[in-house]
């Protein structure tokens, strides 16, 4: 059945978005999409749903495990720490997309950051993206053994994404206004 956009007597309000959204997801092979606050409980639920979705999508156990690992670390980056007082409501909401492609899965997260956080994050990602497998291993072991704070843990997570996906981490910063930037991170897991 095709929806008639002009027929406002039947579908109104937010419901009119469901069909275009569905078509978008279908044509882009998006097998999972979430927007909202990311909590520890949510991560567990997402993994449960993804287990089924990946099985439906005929992903091997090997591939699924890699996708899980990468998702856990990607979500950690957009994790909202309820204890933190510095995070605004805008910053605590994020998007997660998983796209099935012929040769693998694309995991992408997006969230708002303060403009002041951009440079440090960009440097961290560039540093990791310049490293090959061996260098990543050395850097991982170095950070694992150093008494690190939250920032170091975030680097550790990114190295983990790079090592497990064996790909460069794609990212983008889009300045929203004088306070905020939208940060998109993308990691690809090759089907195996």
């Amino acid at each position: 059945m095709i929806l008639n956009n002009n027929d406002s007597s039947r579908i109104s309000g937010p419901l009119q978005f469901s069909y275009p959204c569905f078509i978008d997801m279908l044509s882009n092979n998006l097998i999972f999409m979430y927007r909202g606050v990311v909590t520890s409980d949510l991560v567990t639920h997402v993994l449960q749903i993804m287990e089924e979705r990946l099985e439906e999508d005929k992903a091997s156990k090997k591939t699924s495990k890699k996708v899980f690992n990468v998702m856990v670390e990607c979500l950690r980056n957009v994790y909202s720490d309820e204890m933190s007082q510095e995070i605004s409501e805008l910053e605590s909401t994020a998007i997660l997309l998983v796209k099935s492609e012929e040769d693998g899965y694309l995991v992408s997260t997006g969230n708002y950051l303060k403009n002041s956080e951009v440079e440090m994050l960009k440097n961290r990602l560039d540093k990791i993206n310049q490293m090959d497998g061996e260098k990543l291993k050395v850097y991982y072991q170095e950070l694992l053994t150093s008494p690190i704070a939250e920032k170091g843990l975030s680097s550790l997570g990114m190295i983990d994404i790079a090592r497990k996906s064996k790909q460069k981490i794609a990212y983008q910063f889009q300045t929203v206004n004088e306070f905020f930037t939208f940060f998109t991170l993308e990691a690809k897991v090759i089907r195996r």
Partner: peptide, 13 residues
């Protein structure tokens, strides 16, 4: 272990 996050990896160490 099946899988673990990076904060667990510090704890395991």
């Amino acid at each position: 272990l099946e899988y673990f996050n990076t904060s667990s990896s510090k704890c395991l160490l």
